[in-house]
Design a protein around this nucleic acid. Structure first.
Lengths: 232, 232
DNA sequence: GTATGCATTAACGCATGCATTGTCAATGGC
DNA sequence: GCCATTGACAATGCATGCGTTAATGCATAC
């Protein structure tokens, strides 16, 4: 995950502000279900929890609200937004298009051997995890694969958007991790995708990834429906 | 306190906050070049300009920074980010994919006759403007067409992203409005797109719009290069 | 003349205080 | 007994103040 344990400086060299700290911590707590979807929390409560005053929490809340993670209701508190199956469809539709674009761009621009090796290492890790049926380990490698794939592209804005929405489905992915069949099929897609990128076949890379993502979306929506989860 | 327009409530029924006011006003000033790209502005200066204290300006700045419109540099002020040709390419690439997806979805879900009429009215308006070579009027209609197209889809998140990035290229569009040839060709694309949507041909709608946007991107990048604008 | 270091100053991050406003409950009227 | 109206309370939005820190200018040394 994001491991910026350095307390004084961010990756940009600027000292880490309380606002950034609040955003990071709150996002983490939401993604990992420390703050449950649908729950309400007062600014002062969160401020005390994070060891800061209300101001940075307030500012972090405004930010997270625009990113769709929470809703600020003036005198009721900060509400962690549950995601319905419909929300999931929206998000996956966006991720599908943008990640497919990233794959296309990567195939066109070409990757260095090191970059290809990194992606393949993630796939190997996924396979190793699958063999011992270690789902969290597989999920972590899958996460890294997709994040790296997009981050290797040169489009910083695209990376940012994908990261934002990927965060939002994390919670649902964690929740459904043990409900789904072991994703053997998924890894074949990953290998085919990296091969297409390595060969510079942009259209194929895009098509493979789109199909891969559409499958993931269908699976996720079905799981949520099957298990009677109206929202997560 | 402030005696601007005494609009006390936003579209969501909630009273309009100073932060929202600041975000809206600053965005507007940036898009319309009231705040020039590359210029620096102190929080206190903007606060006085907008008739509020530093706090809401500070919070608006954090927000606009995540949207890529400005950069907050701690003791140098708030810097309006210039967009390079490379930035333009990034943004247009994202807009191309997401708007094409919107077109695809619209064709699949179908539009009401009223919605189709609205889109066609925008096209008629563009044509009328072209005939009298009224470029601002054309630009306004084109803007409405694209915004409505995406907004008619059911994907609220997609609408939000497109709106954000569309804002960012507005400045460049305004700047290059008189540099480009009159976009007669463009309107043929628009009609073909609406026809494809009306016929429910999702793949065709997507393809038409992608091509349309790729052309727009090429034109924009060329214009910026031709006129020696390294950034706008 | 130039470069370096220190002092001054001012801008911003954040804490705090105040006023506004919505919520909840109690009391009174129907 | 139920609903409405009012009052008290509490949470938030925003203004203000303070401490921190970085930028700038001047002086001094080389």
């Amino acid at each position: 995950m994001t491991s910026e344990s350095d307390k004084t400086n961010g990756s940009d060299g600027r000292p880490i502000s309380q606002v950034r700290r609040a955003v990071g911590l709150l996002r983490e707590m939401i993604i990992t279900n420390k703050l449950l979807p649908g729950s309400n929390h007062l600014e002062s409560e969160l401020a005390e929890l994070l060891g800061m005053s209300r101001t940075p929490v307030h500012e972090a809340a405004i930010l997270l609200e625009t990113q769709g993670l929470i809703e600020v209701i003036p005198r009721r508190g900060i509400r962690v937004l549950p995601l319905s199956a419909a929300d999931m469809e929206e998000i996956y539709a966006i991720l599908t298009e943008l990640e497919s674009l990233a794959a296309y761009d990567l195939a066109q621009d070409g990757l260095t051997p090191e970059q290809l090796a990194t992606l393949r290492a993630h796939i190997d890790e996924m396979e190793a995890a699958l063999e011992v049926e270690d789902r969290p380990r597989w999920a972590s490698a899958d996460d890294s694969f997709h994040r790296d794939l997009v981050a290797m592209g040169r489009n910083r804005r695209l990376t940012a958007i994908v990261s934002t929405y990927w965060d939002q489905v994390q919670r649902a992915r964690l929740l459904t991790l043990y409900m789904r069949p072991l994703p053997h099929r998924s890894n074949a897609d990953h290998r085919a995708l990296v091969d297409a990128i390595a060969e510079g076949d942009a259209e194929r890379a895009r098509a493979i990834h789109r199909k891969h993502r559409l499958n993931a979306k269908r699976l996720m929506v079905e799981l949520i429906a099957q298990h009677g989860l109206t929202a997560v």
